[in-house]
Design a binder for these strands. Sequence first.
DNA 1: CTGAATTTTCAGAAATTTCCGAAATCAGGT
DNA 2: ACCTGATTTCGGAAATTTCTGAAAATTCAG
Lengths: 190, 190
Amino acid sequence: MNLPPLIQSFVLHFGEMGSRWGINRTVGQIYALLYVSPEPLCADQIVEGLGISRSNVSMGLRELQAWNLVILRHIPGDRRDFFTAPDDIWQILRTLAEERKKREVDPTLSVLRELIMQQPGSEEERYAQSRLMEMNGLIEQLTNWYDDVKGLDTERLATLLSLGSRVTRLLDAKDRIASLGRKRRGDGQP
Amino acid sequence: MNLPPLIQSFVLHFGEMGSRWGINRTVGQIYALLYVSPEPLCADQIVEGLGISRSNVSMGLRELQAWNLVILRHIPGDRRDFFTAPDDIWQILRTLAEERKKREVDPTLSVLRELIMQQPGSEEERYAQSRLMEMNGLIEQLTNWYDDVKGLDTERLATLLSLGSRVTRLLDAKDRIASLGRKRRGDGQP
DNA sequence: CTGAATTTTCAGAAATTTCCGAAATCAGGT
DNA sequence: ACCTGATTTCGGAAATTTCTGAAAATTCAG
């Protein structure tokens, strides 16, 4: 591996981390390298920087393209493919969220729905189904929230994040007022 | 494997899925089985149900305990260890989020901070550092949001989810009003 | 069409991870 | 202390994943 020490540390860390995710070491390293490179890189520059085989780089880039994490660029008068990570880190986050959802939650959601449809053949299965329904409901709440939020532009998304739990305090205040009103009038639920 | 078909399907799916996460197939299967079992299970019941070796079950349970995803129970007059997944699925979600953060983001955050502190030795490193700072900033925003939200009780959390992006619309309205006020008075920024 | 540059594919080597069975350890009960 | 039932550890077998080098395919210039 043939990189400035700071970049090498980052690349190595991302490689290790990659395995805790679904991606393998070299894919993580390739992405890290592209991420910190000001200019797009061609495959041989990656081979050079990372000290891995040309074919391995080809595989890695293919995988990163499947994840939409990398952009293919062409330089006029050069036949080689150049790759780069998007500049906008919020866009990277969105892509990552979308792709992980696609790979990690959508398949489960579809299995859950299918199993919930089935006629249970025993008490055990009936209970299992009730648990599956709980899980399905939770995942749906989360994905609904995600689908709603993912369309926000960056500024609003950042606002929403910085707001955090304060959102609910507003609602609480509103609830207390409403509840107070009901109490005075002496109707229904507290 | 010796389970009712519906449960078997779920267990097998969770096993496959497990590999897309950081956990391995059998750990996923063990968890799935515990999740849909109304009563706590002992190791031999898991061996029986899943058709894997006793030692493998022991390893798997140890891993699930490290993740805090499984509760050890004792039945009076029985020396064996029994295991169960928590009933409350929101609690499971919280645990999952906490443990994944601990394993997947905290180490990266600490490396990023360390590398950002270093004195860059070249223009390349200087640029790389600027990218690292962007990444660090984004992750901090996300973890701040998470730290803020994770303390909410389930009801409030559900409310926050169902609110989704509507939060920002309220703020937009507020901004428009404030901006209108400034315009009328004829001061500063639009 | 030919040929050089580049990328992709693929079979198997290398490395890693998972899994089992045997042995060791542990925790009461007698 | 010793026995018994239960759990954990651990070396290495089995399976899976990653990685490589050679060959094939693709792409474009002339």
